[in-house]
Design a protein around this nucleic acid. Structure first.
Lengths: 340, 340
DNA sequence: TTGTAAGCGTTATCAA
DNA sequence: TTGATAACGCTTACAA
């Protein structure tokens, strides 16, 4: 059976399309009886207004998009993402938005941006290429960048990554460690840290500062940087890699808790005691970091709040109140049981 | 500046709207030079085809919706959801779909369904009211129901909940426990288990069968059923509640791992040793269940696979290959360290 | 109070 | 090869 449209209802109820539209959107404008009749006709025929047609006319989709640099099934493997989404979700609930997760489409971020039916975007950890930025601009929907190097004239939400990096490395150094492995999430730069952008760049800068105070540096032979996927699996692989390398680090600085958790898992499997044989510090402070044992020492960032703040900012933009501010949320060191 | 449309490009490039459309969608139909000219004009003016207009015409949104019964910020608190999404995400990646999370809109599932711009829905743990089912039917988009009582004529994916319930309860009973608290996720039925639907109903049925073999039943005074949110917090509250009740259970059967984890957390805070002072079995087998210590004994279900299977089924429907099958995925008991 | 008609920005059919 | 033009289904001035 063909789709039931407003026209069918109009015919059936013996009124114009306008009246039908009113019956749904401004019932107060119509006599009670007419509204009844229309609604009944609609019910009988099984009519549901086509959301797309409505959007084309009104220009409001009622959904906000989260632009992510990786395939969905990959990004969801990090509880960080759930936490972030939770914060965004609070705002969605509040303001009646749905949420769309927008990964690259056939490998192209541009295409994904061009095709998403949203009122605005949150970009998460995206290093937007010029071309993507152009598409984003041309789409003419507002966007807020989270965990990226801020661009002029666009709203941004970040945490104090540099301080976070410093805090983590300094803590390890203060504990007396000299052979240190740094595990970063995959960047596409294969560990060439000097090319790092955004979050990674800032954290590494923090590491540097801390290292220099101990006469060390990122280039020192006892300091090793490797990358892995920011997942449990990724952490496990990372552990295997560092553990069989020539440098047997006494401490690991992980760029995310989920990586750290993966490392703990792998270490346990190989009977490497943490923190006795290996110290470990994470980054994020996801809920499970404190649940595991030993509980994970980490840098805490307000993930949920970050999502919430960013979403609030975006919703303001959608409502037409441009606020190009650049917010920076604090981080702090949480001492628990994985560093000796 | 006003939005740049296909018309502007046509004028600028001195061609018709049709040609512009072709230049983007079927460039092979146009002479190379014309395509170039059009693309340049588009680039210069910053043109991006309007996805909504495209969808209105083509009828394809390129996104699949996940209908969830709770606000986003609540549902994301259960790692079960991330796992599920991960499975769905695999299919999205494969077939180039985005994913939209669709919670009730202003309290109304009907409204949410009516407004979502998707090619199809996955419903997760939804007990769809008649009215919502009607809207879903009328929307005329395919849908697949996951974790619900299957309806005639609609595709469904479930796990063997009844067996899962049986396995869990039987294991606890075999271990010699007689005073047992069952913790269910909030159902809106406030523990009146006889009114349960879907997943909950089936699991309770499994409990019953196991209990009866030990001359017990859901109504026995030593068997207690309470509900809580399926979150870490929820589990913590649940522990507090059962621990200060007159019945001091020696074992807890939790309906989700995240609840179980919350219970473990609360128990630890109050120095209640698991499994020595209290045995505990979960349900789901989320990744963290095996990471925690003691590792959580639980009923394992293939969450990610469930998402994947459901999404595959949905995509088939979207492509026009109706397959109204009802799949049931297996569960199994995973003995770890929380039952004595 | 109700109806007419003009868009919204595409795609796609059909002529030229 | 290219260009009018008619949908797509709705909202909303404006007219009656």
């Amino acid at each position: 059976m063909a789709k039931v449209t407003i026209k069918d209802i109009a015919k059936k109820a013996g009124v114009s399309k306008t009246s039908v539209s009113f019956a749904f959107n401004e019932p107060s404008q119509l006599p009670e009886a007419t509204v009844q009749r229309i609604l009944e006709a609609a019910e009988e025929l099984g009519y549901v207004p086509d959301p797309i047609a409505r959007i084309l006319k009104t220009g409001k989709t009622g959904t906000i998009g989260i632009l992510v640099p990786q395939p969905i099934h990959e990004i969801t493997r990090n509880p960080f993402f759930s936490e972030f989404i939770e914060g965004v979700g609070e705002v969605c609930t509040m303001d009646g938005f749905s949420m769309m997760i927008v990964p690259p489409l056939k490998g192209s971020m541009e295409r994904a941006i061009a095709n998403a039916t949203v009122d605005g975007f949150l970009t998460l950890g995206l290093e937007l290429k010029k071309s993507a930025m152009v598409v984003l601009d041309n789409r003419d929907v507002p966007f807020v960048m989270v965990d990226s190097d801020p661009e002029d004239g666009v709203a941004a939400v970040n945490i104090d990554d540099e301080k976070g990096g410093f805090l983590a490395m300094d803590y390890i150094l203060q504990a007396g460690h000299k052979k240190i492995a740094i595990i970063a999430m995959r960047s596409g730069k294969e560990g060439k840290y000097k090319d790092y952008l955004g979050t990674l760049r800032k954290r590494v800068k923090g590491y540097q500062t801390a290292l220099e105070a101990f006469d060390l540096s990122m280039d020192h032979e006892k300091i090793r940087l490797i990358e892995c996927a920011s997942t449990l699996q990724g952490g496990r692989h990372a552990f295997d890699e560092i553990w069989k390398s020539d440098l047997r680090p006494t401490a690991v600085v992980a760029m995310s808790d989920i990586i750290a958790l993966g490392i703990m898992r792998a270490a346990r499997d190989q009977a490497v005691k943490i923190p006795d044989a290996l110290s470990l510090i994470g980054f994020d402070d996801i809920p499970f970091a404190s649940l595991i044992s030993p509980p994970l020492t980490t840098i805490s960032q307000p993930i949920r709040k970050k999502g919430k703040v960013a979403a609030e900012l975006l919703v303001e933009h959608i409502k037409g109140n441009a606020d190009i501010s650049h917010k920076i949320l604090p981080v702090k060191l949480v001492e628990r049981g994985t560093v000796r």
